[in-house]
Design a protein around this nucleic acid. Structure first.
Ligand SMILES: [Mn+2]
Ligand SMILES: [Mn+2]
Ligand SMILES: [Zn+2]
Ligand SMILES: [Zn+2]
Lengths: 141, 141
DNA sequence: ATTTTTATTGAAAATCTTTTTCATTGTAAA
DNA sequence: TTTACAATGAAAAAGATTTTCAATAAAAAT
């Protein structure tokens, strides 16, 4: 997703366009793995050294609110964000390099039906996440 | 899962049996929703007021290490624990009261096969979690 | 262009959570 | 019992996130 799209979205929602926001947005938009606020801070400061960590937190908050990024849950921590997919999708994460790709087309309706029958629950939402090794990391052990 | 089973497991793994551990274990074993360390602390202190929060953290750590409890990830936080299921299972969580039940028997192999083909990733592990409303919470809006 | 308005910024302080330290206590083995 | 040392909880430290606030900069108004 191009950084410019996010900047436009921010502007259309009444937020101002600043150099600091630009630096955060460009960093997250260009990275294909989940980044913690501190990682965003370090990366974004390479191009914009005056950036403050507080602004990273505040910008990520707005991007998440606009559904432009989403939080990634992992065994070792859940404070990381990645560019959001459009629509409902699921994550496949490389355990070695962190590379994330999205996939769709899960057909879980049969399973849901059985669980609903057995439990009496209604089901409103689901999380499905796969962990493995990306092609590059399979060849370099 | 009975608290006594956990206490025995702790003892068999070289840990001592203390009143503080007992209080933590009994609290978590008796609760059917995920509890944060602070919630465990507050609940366990009702029966054992001398308990320290540090001991809650330390005991939860050991219970997790022995796979007697497992961490529960939710949109609003991921620092909560619940009695673990035996074997590989998935969670179904009530969004209103937090009640958790386990289910098994997902058949995701077809999906995995397709994702492996499309992405080139190998798949080692998966997380599947459902959110909805338990029977009790469906009737009390 | 210039001025005005007000959202945004980053440093510092505050808050909240988790971990470490350490002298004391309690458990289990000898 | 006595002994060895694991475990405890208070306090301090460390880490992460949020709040405060005066200065600044973006957008609107002139
Ligand atoms: Mn999580
Ligand atoms: Mn499964
Ligand atoms: Zn990889
Ligand atoms: Zn419920």
């Amino acid at each position: 997703m191009p950084a410019q799209t996010w900047l436009t979205a921010l502007q259309e929602n009444g937020y101002r366009l600043t150099a600091s926001r630009r630096a955060v947005v460009e960093t997250v938009a260009a990275t294909h793995r989940a980044l913690t606020p501190l990682e965003v801070f370090d990366l974004a400061r390479e191009s914009h050294p005056e950036l403050g960590l507080v602004t990273v937190y505040r910008t990520l908050e707005k991007l998440e609110e606009l559904h432009l990024i989403q939080r990634v849950h992992q065994p070792h921590g859940c404070q990381a964000f990645i560019s959001a997919s459009q629509g409902h999708q699921h994550l496949l994460l490389c355990r070695k390099c962190g590379q994330v790709i999205f996939f769709d087309g899960d057909n879980l309706d049969g399973l849901f039906e059985r669980v609903i029958q057995d439990s009496g629950y209604t089901i409103q939402e689901h999380w499905l996440q796969l962990f493995g090794l990306c092609p590059a990391c399979q060849t370099t052990p």
